[in-house]
Design a protein around this nucleic acid. Structure first.
Lengths: 219, 219
DNA sequence: ATTCTTTTGACAGTTGCTCTCAATTCATGG
DNA sequence: CCATGAATTGAGAGCAACTGTCAAAAGAAT
């Protein structure tokens, strides 16, 4: 999930000697492909950047690129925050209202992604720009959010004692996801100037109170 | 908009002699391409159907197919109900709560599309199946819904006296759209057995009252 | 060192999609 | 009815994303 945050660089380079050489190499090529992609897109734009160029810049074969990422959009979009999202969400008390939990989780997630701990601010800005400008990327990002929606469905189902496939549960969760995604798009379209955290907070307020009520500025 | 309904065959074949020969031919080839596509997909599946085959079956050149539809998904997905949607919506009294207006509009739209007036039930079923089974189609359909969301934004903005680009307006509308889309998906995934009209009604109920309240069965 | 497994690269092929250009078809005014 | 001009089409070349196969190379296990 998260639209704005992704690509966790959890592995401090020489940090986990438990992993075999193979695993470490995989992580390295994965990062190499992404780095190369980011650089090339920054230099010449998304469409002008071909898989071949990416492969050459990352010093792998084109086949390898496709082995690591099913589509070109995925190189940019792929989002490893879903597990964190679920963990944070399940960490909240089960009797807390779902929107309240989301307020906390989203605030935390935004803070973390803005802090530059998981990825550089430039990478974040670039992804935001691409989300706003390149239809294919935007579309892929929406798909990605629907996976997050499924996680939300499971949690919501548990809390309300329903099935995860329950119509009401699914509808509610996709409504929430749609709203949050739109807040992110708003942020991206406005040159990422505003405070994304505040936008998502306002998004949840709207979900809770509807449109009539004016922007509540209280915490 | 509408996910379930599309492809209005408004033109009774020899109905509008006001249009020039050119216009009429355009409409005819457009329909021919779609008919051919539907038939081929029904016979051999979506992926196995190529643009070349479609062109041959519709008796036009491949270039012409692309001239009429920017992508292959669009042949299936393209949805001409947005104008109707906007018309119906604006026909409602301006002081009516937005969700109430939507209830009416969606009910009407579902009825019309189920009645088989605009397209055959088979075409509708096929589109539903593809939406559930083919990722590319589902994705394109989501994009299409976001256009509907913009219409909704404009109307919502007028009614509440805000800008169409207002964050709250956009978030609210995309929440609504996400919820409705999910109801349609639910319907499609469950073999289109249930009552789509009821599903969308329940979707709006959830948006209004949240998840806690149990399925209200009263009108 | 040897086998065995995983990962990789080379390569060929398919398909969606774009672009250009010449030929055809239709609309229009004389 | 015909000539002129505009729109529509078809043919074809070309590009890039993606798939599949297969043999070579690299890491793991004995």
């Amino acid at each position: 999930m998260m639209t704005m945050a992704a690509t966790a660089h959890r592995s401090t380079p020489a940090a986990e000697p438990r992993l075999g050489l193979r695993e470490r190499k995989k992580i390295k090529t994965r990062m190499a492909i992404r780095k190369a992609t980011y650089r090339l897109i920054r230099e010449q734009g998304y469409d002008a950047t071909t898989i071949e160029q990416i492969a050459e810049a990352a010093e792998v074969s084109p086949s390898t690129v496709f082995r690591y990422f099913p589509t070109k959009e995925d190189i940019v979009v792929t989002d490893e925050y879903d597990p964190l999202f679920e963990e944070l969400l399940r960490g909240r008390p089960a009797d807390e209202p779902l929107l309240e939990s989301l307020r906390y989780v989203l605030r935390t997630a935004v803070e973390q992604s803005m802090s530059g701990e998981y990825e550089t601010p430039e990478e974040m800005r670039l992804r935001g720009r691409l989300m706003a400008e390149v239809p294919a990327v935007r579309s892929r990002m929406t798909e990605s959010m629907s996976v997050t929606g499924q996680i939300l469905c499971r949690v919501a189902a548990e809390r309300t004692g329903r099935e995860p496939d329950d119509l009401e549960v699914r509808v509610y969760c996709m409504g929430v996801v749609g709203a949050i995604l739109e807040a992110s798009r708003y942020w991206a379209e406005h040159d990422q100037q505003g405070d994304l955290g505040e936008y998502t907070r306002r998004a949840l307020d709207v979900l809770e109170h509807g449109l009539e009520r004016r922007n509540s500025e209280a915490p």
